[in-house]
Design a protein around this nucleic acid. Structure first.
Length: 376
DNA sequence: GGACGGCCTGGGTT
DNA sequence: AAACCCAGGCCGT
């Protein structure tokens, strides 16, 4: 019998359903009978993956464990606290950041919807798969990559669990044809080309793993440069790149703008780019030294306006609103079924937390002027 | 330089 | 039943 350990956290701060099954992470398997979630993840500094099991048995409690007895529970606890970003209080953001800036949040509960700190490489591949696709199939694809190219980590609930394959493993062992046969469709080519390029960049820089590479890039790049770099991979446009920045690199103020966010922005905030907005953005990007893929300036205007409106945790605010708008589909269950879900109403209470940094603070000086100009 | 098809697939709807 | 639509975009022309 597994021994579960506890994390005291309220459901309005963290709802496992709303965070793990709402199109942000695609590799958590829900066991309906036992009411717990299972995945594999890196927990330690090494590249080893562990099976991790979570449940939310009460409104003020998360329970966690791993069947791997070599894993120190306290180490897993601190890892999960980082993964769920428990240093950030949703209720504080709501009360002190979003409600004062946006009256729309007065009547909204965050429902425990928060942004995860996921592995950048896995986030990149997951969201390459997300283009013109639905959550059920994205989930299926992510699992398919693991079962076909990952390493078996262990068995739980009578089901085998695998690691997420690194860029070099995919580059060496997978082919476009093989991925097409596995049902990836036109994304097969994107994944192969991206894996080859990432593993090459990695090898050239002698990085130990994919995470190390992306963290290093992040440390020397501004947000704009990081997005630029990500958009250099096939199948990665501004939306996918922004998802990686937000959920894989912890850039909390980045708002990935897709069709839904675009609709919300126009319908609820009347954000519509005029000619001046567009020409300003055009100049902004023309001045940047990096040649870029074309981006939709109308959507980019929405991104900036929502950042201006919501502030340092704009990406989180988007998550809350987005979940309210379209979060109705769940991911994998043990039986392989995909089910509809309902968002649970929760109450609001207060905690201490202070927002500290912005992605735009990290823009290098030669770009700052341009960015600032656009922030006005 | 920007607008516009076309794209794999699977589940749902007509 | 067959046809059509749609899903948290991106690529090529």
């Amino acid at each position: 019998m597994l021994k579960f350990h506890q994390i005291k956290v309220n459901k309005d701060e963290l709802s496992l359903t709303n965070v793990l099954q709402a199109g942000q992470a695609f590799r958590w398997v829900f066991n309906e009978k036992e009411n717990h979630y299972t995945t594999t993840m890196k927990v330690t500094e090494s590249n080893k993956y562990f099976i991790v099991v979570l449940s939310q048995p009460a409104d003020d409690l998360i329970e966690f464990t791993s069947p791997d007895l070599s894993l120190d529970p306290e180490h897993l606890r601190s890892h999960l606290e980082r993964y769920f970003r428990l240093d950030v209080s949703l209720n504080n953001l709501l009360l002190n950041e979003w409600i004062p800036k946006d009256h729309r949040f007065k009547t909204i509960s965050a429902h425990g919807v928060r942004i995860l700190a996921q592995e950048p490489w896995e986030t990149l591949i997951s969201f390459i798969c997300s283009s013109n696709n639905n959550i059920a199939r994205i989930t299926k694809m992510c699992h398919s990559l693991c079962t076909n190219y990952g390493e078996e980590v262990g068995v739980f609930d009578g089901q085998k669990f695998f690691s997420f394959p690194s860029s070099d493993v995919i580059a060496e062992r997978a082919t476009e044809t093989a991925l097409r046969d596995l049902g990836f469709g036109y994304r097969a080519k994107y994944i192969i080309e991206t894996a080859k390029k990432v593993s090459k960049v990695r090898a050239d820089g002698n990085y130990e793993n994919d995470t190390a590479l992306f963290r290093k890039l992040q440390s020397s790049f501004s947000y704009i440069e990081m997005r630029e770099h990500l958009m250099g991979y096939t199948g990665v446009g501004p939306k996918v790149a922004d998802c990686v920045c937000l959920m894989g690199l912890g850039m909390d103020d980045v708002v990935p703008v897709d069709v839904h966010v675009s609709r919300i922005a126009k319908r609820d905030y009347q954000i519509i780019a005029n000619n001046k907005n567009i020409s300003t953005l055009k100049k902004l990007y023309a001045d940047l030294p990096i040649t870029r893929k074309k981006i939709n300036l109308e959507l980019d205007h929405i991104r900036l306006e929502l950042y201006n409106k919501w502030g340092l945790y704009a990406g989180w605010a988007q998550g809350v609103l987005f979940s309210k708008e379209v979060g109705k589909v769940s991911g994998a269950t043990s039986s392989g079924e995909i089910k509809k879900r309902a968002i649970v109403q929760v109450d609001i209470d207060i905690k201490e937390e202070t927002a500290t940094r912005t992605t735009f603070d990290r823009v290098s000086n030669k770009h700052r002027k341009n960015i600032k100009r656009e922030q006005i």
